[in-house]
Nucleic acid binder design. Structure first.
Lengths: 91, 91
DNA sequence: ATAGATTTGTTCGTATGTATA
DNA sequence: GTATACATACGAACAAATCTA
């Protein structure tokens, strides 16, 4: 999956699966290191032009996969065990 | 009704009635005491593998029966008048 | 110490499409 | 044809936890 892909409502693949794939790819690429906070639900809604429940469905999927975890009142984070590529910030 | 029953899609009984029966039995058994919060819509969907509208239909039935009540933004709770069996937690 | 803003959690309502009994 | 059920997707409001000014 291309981490820079955009959402296509005409695709047969459900939108929430597209978003989950994009986020998974971005995490693997190293956009966010383990234990780092990703975009908030509101930011995901704005960035990808989706409804909140749709973004939550994508996030919930990645939580079930063990890629993300959430902390109420704080945000959504990359799991410590998530596989990511090192970036310059990890030095 | 067995409180530990599972949903059977081959049953002639509609799924939402099966779920309502299971939840009613669990409340009578004392899984949740009066005024205690039960599973959220999303948790019911996950726990019983149903569609959201189906779980809402079951919950709405129990609300009409006076067994449950909901508080928007908070959750679904067992009515104070609901008949339940005491459990160790009620001591 | 209070107020406001942010963020996740939850319920409520609605709509479309598909499939089955 | 009607009712049931699933899947997807949108929008809104309220609640609670957290953080910040």
């Amino acid at each position: 999956m291309d981490p820079d892909a955009t959402i296509d409502h005409d695709e047969p693949t459900p939108v929430y699966l597209q978003l989950a794939g994009i986020l998974r790819a971005r995490i693997e690429r190293g956009d966010w290191a383990p234990n780092r906070q990703i975009l908030s639900e509101a930011q995901l809604v704005q960035a990808y032009g989706l409804a909140r429940e749709t973004t939550r469905k994508a996030v919930r999927l990645l939580i079930d996969e063990g890629v993300l975890f959430t902390v109420p009142g704080r945000g959504t984070f990359v799991s410590p065990q998530a596989i990511t590529q090192p970036t310059a910030e990890d030095v």
